Simulated scan of single mutants.
Amino acid sequence: MEAQSLFSLITLAAVRPLVWLLPLVLVVLALKRLVPRMRGSAGEARIGRVLEQLFSVVRHDLILPDGRGGWTQIDHLALTPAGLLVVESKAYRGLIFGRKGEATWTQVLGRRRYAFQNPLRQNFAHVQALKALGLGVPVLERVVFTNAARFPKGLPEGVSRLATLAEDLEPYREGVVSDALHQAWQQLDGAIRTDRAARRAHRTGLERRFGADDRLSPVLLLLAAAGVLVGGLWLTAGQLGPEVSALRRQPPLMPAPAAFASRPASALSPTSVSPPQLSSRPQPRGSTVSVAATESRISLQWTERDGGSRESEDCKLAIAAVLMANTPEHRHRRTQACGKSAMP
């Protein structure tokens, strides 16, 4: 394998764990945008549980006609001895500044300031929707913030924090629920909508009045991008495995030494080589024989004998000829070239 390909594989294997962090970062950014919505749902659930401990009949997340041809959404509705209690829940954090008659309130988080609709006015619209049904019973209202909110200038009238909600609603628990209130609750129960069509119509009305809520669009885009990246990295990981396996199976850059090189010198004497079968037909002058074919048929290595003396070239050729064809003629030639004392 080329050095460039090897470097690419090593780089990919080293960088890939870091690239996997990118989808995680995108998911974290998406969740960060969802935190306010999740916090609001959790705070609304906590307030609802406290109301259920205080009153025996409580409904949550209701859609009702607003009396003007549209729909309104109520967080909590409780049946109390004092009347029908409409509760608007808020899970805002930080410092809250606002008065009952102001159109907007202010949330302060560190150095950042955010304006939001006066929740008392928002809940007043819910109260008016219940009164439009002609129930003929008192309708009470309360805005409840979770404990993460603080009011440096005091709580406006009609506003409670979750920590003091039970104490603030204690006057509404005195006495028993009248028959008129029970009848009004049954009439109200028939007007409550919880189906998807009503919720869709309510959402359409909000978009018509305040504009489309595009807070989920960036979240969906971030999650989609994270999914695409995970899929691409998964496919890349599947392709990298075979390439690494192929790299491991590649032969070494330098050829392995011949098998004879690992043998001791005593095992490489000419007598240990089996004589190949050679054709007796003489080779024409000028003809060449393949080096690979010659090496594959015979491979001779000579060892020093008689205290380090070397046979002459004629002696070596004569001995090789005897090894290849042990004929009287070749033996005679060997005797002349090597002498009797030098013969193997």
Rank of each mutant, 00 (worst) to 15 (best):
L24V: 14
E167I: 07
T194P: 00
S5C: 09
Y114M: 01
A91H: 05
E313C: 06
Q301N: 14
V289F: 06
A91Y: 00
L6M: 13
L140N: 06
F7Y: 11
L84V: 04
S160L: 05
P275Y: 04
L188Y: 09
L12C: 09
E44M: 06
S280P: 13
G231T: 11
V291W: 10
F151Y: 06
Y114S: 03
P119N: 02
A320Q: 11
F145Q: 00
A237K: 11
L181Y: 02
I96Q: 00
R285T: 10
P270I: 13
Q4H: 13
A198V: 07
S279V: 05
A292R: 11
L6R: 15
I319Y: 05
D168Y: 00
A42V: 12
F55R: 01
D61M: 07
R49G: 06
G205D: 08
Q53E: 15
L216E: 09
R112W: 03
G238T: 14
A45L: 14
G190K: 12
A325R: 15
S160D: 04
L220C: 09
L220P: 02
M324A: 15
A148G: 03
S160C: 08
V159F: 01
P270M: 10
V28L: 14
M1G: 14
A292H: 07
A318L: 11
V86P: 00
L130N: 03
E313Y: 08
Y92T: 00
S269T: 14
G205E: 08
L64Q: 03
L64N: 04
T72W: 01
D179Q: 09
V57Y: 01
L133W: 05
A212H: 10
